[in-house]
């Protein structure tokens, strides 16, 4: 073992001054450990990874960028998967984790084996790993800030939450409530769980609507705006301002309303292409760059004026997306320094 380490260190030392930035990672293999693939966001995330990864391999920047998804969204399965990836000898593992804490044992094992671990979206708290976190709380707060600007007189809000018990749901909701506390002209009149799915959201909103006063805006978490709109329509109530979440059906509905009545709103979510940001960060770390351990993902926000161009580039049934290039990734890194 020691001998291998020494050889590796010597090889590294020899390689360092010799070549340009990219060549050093030409023989490095990066794996993606993903815990779930059951919705449009995750599907788009995997597609982006495959597209950018294949290109990086073809360009000779890295040797492999393989994606692995666990069959079920379970911590124990993902821990076993990470252990398998260690055995398969990857140089870096990019993780979208099923749990922020419970994978720490496996992540530590990977670090101890000399593997770079980069977590994104679903981050891990093990200190040896890099974290590309989404500031979900800020996302929730941004929705209220937009509303405060749009309707200074305030009003009654309906909050659609995500899947109960998931930390993302708690964070976005906490942000929304913090925003409401700072802007007391708003009041959350009701709150339902839409599970980030249009059909669930529609049913949940239809159920609570009869008990609600006139609603001036709906704050959402993404994947639920279109369902909410359908529920309002079916109940024959005026359609309030509904914050959207970058899904194709939401953007399309918004576009139809905009053309018909000049309907105004905004849409915010995380681009699934964040997986490619994580890949470039891993590549940069393997390249020997000094990268801060904590990075923040920028939101992808769509406003009234750039709706059309975003709708045009969004796949039917998909999510508005941005794929990162090496330069984009370096920009995010530099911003964090």
């Amino acid at each position: 073992m020691n001998k291998i380490l020494t050889t590796a260190a010597v090889a590294l030392a020899l390689a360092l001054p010799a070549s340009a930035a990219l060549a050093q990672t030409a023989d490095k293999r990066i794996a993606l450990s993903n815990n779930y693939a059951g919705n449009s966001w995750r599907q788009a995330m995997l597609k982006s990874w495959a597209k950018v990864g294949d290109k990086a391999v073809a360009d000779g920047v890295i040797a492999a960028a393989d994606a692995f998804t666990t069959a079920e969204n379970q911590v124990t399965e993902q821990a076993a998967q990470i252990q398998n990836l260690i055995l398969q000898g990857y140089d870096a593992i990019v993780v979208n984790a099923a749990s922020p804490d419970a994978l720490n044992g496996a992540v530590k094992e990977a670090c101890d084996a000399g593997i770079t671990v980069v977590s994104f979206d679903g981050i891990v708290t093990e200190p040896c790993a890099w974290r590309i976190a989404v500031d979900f709380k800020q996302m929730g707060k941004d929705e209220i800030l937009y509303l405060a600007e749009k309707m200074p007189e305030g009003g009654q809000l309906l909050e659609i939450r995500g899947l109960a018990g998931v930390f993302v749901d708690d964070e976005i909701s906490a942000g929304i409530h913090e925003g409401v506390a700072e802007n007391p002209q708003f009041e959350v009149a009701g709150s339902v769980n839409g599970d980030w799915a249009q059909d669930v959201a529609q049913k949940a909103v239809a159920g609570i609507l009869p008990s609600l006063p006139p609603i001036s805006a709906v704050v959402t978490q993404g994947g639920d705006g279109f369902g909410a709109a359908q529920a309002f329509k079916a109940a024959g109530r005026p359609i309030p301002l509904i914050i959207m979440g970058n899904r194709y059906d939401e953007l399309k509905w918004w576009k139809e309303q905009k053309d018909a009545t000049g309907y105004e709103t905004m849409s915010v979510s995380i681009a699934p292409g964040v997986s490619t940001l994580a890949m470039w960060v891993a590549q940069q770390i393997l390249d020997g760059q000094d990268i801060p351990k904590d990075l923040t993902v920028p939101f992808l926000r769509i406003d009234q004026d750039n709706l059309e161009e975003n709708l045009a580039t969004t796949e039917v049934g998909g999510v508005a997306n941005v794929e990162y290039t090496l330069e984009d990734a370096q920009e995010v890194v530099n911003a964090a320094r």
Binding site: V75, D101, A102
Partner: peptide
């Protein structure tokens, strides 16, 4: 795992 999760 070093830490827990109710759904673990």
């Amino acid at each position: 795992t070093t830490s827990a999760d109710a759904n673990i």
